[in-house]
Amino acid sequence: MSDDVYLIVSGHAQVPKGVALHEEKKYIGAVWVINKSTKIIEKAEFTLITSLSNEFLSNLVIGYDLNQGIDNLLNKIKKLCLMPSQGAIIQAVRSAYERFKENPK
């Protein structure tokens, strides 16, 4: 991976108390590798307890075109990710997107 073609961004959000994930991890992270020229997420990971949750969410965001904003991705997560930690996942995704937007081109 060439450092002039890709960048890595992450966003984090606190997991609400009362959610099982909170006992193991206090924060959820969304980490993306983005192609700087196309603005497409090419790799993704989430810091969730199970590998299945991480894989499912990663597959939702990989290939997403950030040129179209974040609303479509957030709606997809709301529709398909029916987990107690959904709000924290959405916040972590928003945070990663905001960090991406702050990046000087």
Rank of each mutant, 00 (worst) to 15 (best):
S51H: 11
Q14L: 14
P84V: 01
T50R: 15
I34P: 01
P104R: 12
K105Q: 13
G69E: 06
S37D: 11
F56K: 07
A96Y: 00
L52I: 13
K79Q: 14
A44S: 15
M83Q: 15
Q14W: 06
S10E: 13
G87V: 04
L60K: 04
V15W: 06
I90V: 15
N35P: 07
G29R: 14
Y97Q: 02
N103M: 07
D4M: 12
G29L: 05
P16V: 08
I62D: 04
P104H: 04
V9C: 04
M1E: 06
I34Q: 03
N67K: 15
P16R: 13
S37C: 02
I40P: 11
S10I: 03
S2K: 04
A44Y: 10
R94P: 00
D65T: 05
S10N: 10
P84R: 07
G18P: 15
V33I: 08
G63H: 09
V19K: 14
L21R: 07
N35M: 03
Y27K: 11
P104I: 10
L82M: 08
K25I: 09
K25T: 06
V19Y: 14
G69H: 09
K105N: 13
E23L: 12
L21K: 12
T38R: 11
E42V: 13
V33F: 00
S51N: 14
E102D: 04
N75R: 10
V33W: 00
L82R: 10
F56C: 01
G29T: 15
M83A: 14
M83Y: 05
S85M: 07
L73S: 04
S10G: 00
K25Y: 14
C81W: 13
Y97C: 02
T47D: 08
Y97N: 00
Q91G: 02
N67D: 13
S53F: 05
D4P: 05
Q14V: 14
S95T: 04
I70W: 09
F46C: 12
Y97A: 00
K39T: 04
N103C: 04
L7G: 02
L57F: 05
L82F: 09
S10F: 03
R99M: 01
G69N: 14
Q86T: 05
L7P: 00
L48P: 09
K101S: 04
W32T: 01
I28M: 05
K76Q: 10
I90L: 15
H12W: 10
P16G: 12
L48K: 07
